[in-house]
Structure formats: C-alpha cells, structure tokens
Simulated assay, not measured.
Amino acid sequence: MVQIKTPEQIAKMREAGLVVAAIHAATREAAVPGATTRDLDEVARKVLEEHGAKSNFLGYGGFPATICTSANEVVVHGIPDEKTVLKDGDIISIDCGAVVDGWHGDAAFTAFVGSGHAPELIELSRVTEESMWAGIAAMKVGNRLVDISRAIETYIRRQPKPGGGKYGIVEDYGGHGIGTEMHMDPHLLNYVERKRGKGPKLVPGLCLAIEPMVSLGTPRTEVLEDDWTVVTTDGTWSSHWEHSVALTAEGPLVLTAPDGGRAKLAEYGITAAPDPLAG
C-alpha cells in the first residue's frame, strides 16, 4: 500500500527535510582533502544532535554509521571509516536522513573534493542532478509513477557525454516512497521498464524520494564483502543526487531543499507548493 499523508504530516516531514538540508550544508563544507569519511559522519551526527533529530541510517538493517559516504567508483552505501581519506580531485556522494517525531527525510548530493576536477566529472554530476529535477518536475497530480522514470531517463539519454559513449543509469537501485519509514512503496526506477507498467497515479499526499544514480560507464553494480558498499563493475566513477518530495494539491514541495525547490522548479515553469513552516 502507498502511504498518503495529510498536510499536517507533510509539515512534519518538512521539519525532517530541513534537518537533512542542514546536514548537507555541514558535510559539504567538511568534505575537504585530508578529511576522512568518519570525520564527515561525525559532522552529521552533531547536526542531528543540535536539531534533536534521529538518524534513520544508523542501525538500518545493521548499517553502522549515520550517513553513507560513497567516493568515486562507489555508487551508494559506502560506510564511513578512518581509512578512507579524501583526496584532491575526488568526488563523493553523501547520503543521509533524519527522523522527526516519527517522520523521515532522505536526500543525497555529490560533492567535489578540492579542485581541478576533470570536465567529464563536473558534467556527470550536473547531468545526474538535473535529471533528478526533471523527475521532480514530472511529479504532477494525474501523472503516473512511470512519468517520473521517463523524465529522468529522457533527460540523461539526451545529454552528450564528453568523449563519446553513453552514461550508465544504475539498474539495481532507485527511488522510493517515504514517510513513517525511510523506504516504502512504491519503488521508483530511474528508467522505463515496460513490464512494470505505468505504476500508481500521483495524488496529493504522495511522498517520494527521487534519486538517480549515473556512472561514466556501465549501469551494472556489485556489492563488496562488507555487504553494503555498492561499486560499478567496471570501476568507472558515479554520481548520486536525491531529494524527498511531497506532492500537494498546490504542486510539489521539495522537503529536503532549503527553499522547498522553488528556484529550480521555476525553471520548469512550476510553482512550488507553499512551505508549511514558512512565516
């Protein structure tokens, strides 16, 4: 069953989303050459404490940390540790969540460590982030779940890849419903798979975590021996972006964006729903 939220419940999810946004801001600043991924996890833990929120990652299925730190060829679910030291030129996906009064927020971004990044890495991150926003823009009352998948895939497929070839849209992982749990129905693919059909209709009160993962090469992945860390099978680097979004009768509200998604949605001619916490 797909969980439909009331306006009051969406307001609680917005509170959780703003905590996630604060974690993003703090960890982005801390992702510098010489920092360990454990350092980033500690930064996130402190932000949660300051806001009186809980981590929805720590202990989830036995996951041992507050955030996921996935550098370079690691797609998702990288475990923070003291051995992984960030280097100039690295890219790293920081995926995190927060729980406020039982309601969840979940979002990820790709950070650039230091300077001097190759143009293809900068473009990879841009394409991944913009495909996420294309998916968010397709989150309209009356559309189907597949319309979000199609918008994400179409955007990625239309982008020329520096050096030729195609971007790899990661096959085994995707977005999901979110609410009283971090991962809920429906599962959201980042590409169209005909055998899955159109999926449910998008209605007010539906909340989704929209999260494309894109590599410079293969769409295929494997899980390392720690049973968590997911890497590309060909070692190519990848990018991951995610926002939690609520659909309301007045449009989408990006729960984990500081401005509710107002600026980016305006580029698509879409007015973001009013922020229930504003004023």
Rank of each mutant, 00 (worst) to 15 (best):
V223G: 06
T110P: 02
V146Q: 13
R14V: 03
A134R: 15
A30K: 09
T271P: 06
D227K: 11
S93I: 07
T110Y: 12
L86R: 02
A151Y: 02
A26M: 05
K12V: 10
A273E: 01
I122G: 07
G260P: 02
D259T: 06
A16G: 07
E225T: 05
I94S: 02
G197N: 03
T36R: 00
L224R: 11
D259N: 04
W133G: 06
Y173G: 02
A272M: 11
T128K: 08
M132S: 03
L188R: 12
G114Q: 03
G142F: 05
V192Y: 04
G102N: 04
G177T: 04
V141M: 06
S115F: 12
L255D: 01
W241C: 07
G179I: 08
G102R: 08
R14Q: 00
G97L: 01
K264P: 08
L189W: 15
R196M: 14
P160F: 02
G205F: 05
P33M: 04
L253A: 09
V127I: 01
A246Y: 07
S238W: 03
V32F: 11
T110V: 10
A16R: 09
A151K: 05
L124N: 00
N190R: 08
H240L: 11
I92S: 13
K195T: 12
R126T: 10
S244E: 12
V32L: 09
K54T: 13
D95T: 15
G17K: 04
K195H: 14
G251F: 10
D234T: 07
L208I: 05
G217S: 06
R220P: 09
G105H: 02
A138F: 06
G168M: 01
V76I: 13
E73L: 13
D185Y: 15
A151C: 02
T6A: 09
E130D: 13
P160V: 01
L216M: 00
Y155W: 07
M139C: 09
D41W: 05
A111R: 09
Q159F: 07
A71T: 12
F63Y: 15
G59Q: 04
S215W: 01
M13S: 01
K195V: 15
W228C: 04
K54L: 13
N143V: 07
H183T: 15
S70W: 03
I91N: 02
H51Y: 12
A151R: 04
A257M: 11
G97W: 01
K166M: 13
V254H: 00
K83S: 13
L145P: 08
D39Q: 01
I23F: 00
S115E: 14
H104R: 01
M13N: 06
V146T: 14
R14K: 01
E129T: 12
A118I: 08
V76H: 10
S131V: 00
A11E: 10
R220W: 13
P252C: 09
T128E: 04
D90P: 04
D226A: 01
P162L: 03
D101A: 11
P200N: 05
D172V: 14
V203H: 07
D227E: 13
R28A: 15
E153F: 00
G168R: 00
V85E: 01
K195D: 13
T6Q: 08
V99I: 15
A22R: 06
M13I: 03
E130Y: 15
T271L: 11
G199R: 09
K140T: 10
E120M: 09
A71G: 11
L253M: 08
A44W: 05
E15K: 12
A53M: 07
P186F: 03
S125W: 11
W237G: 13
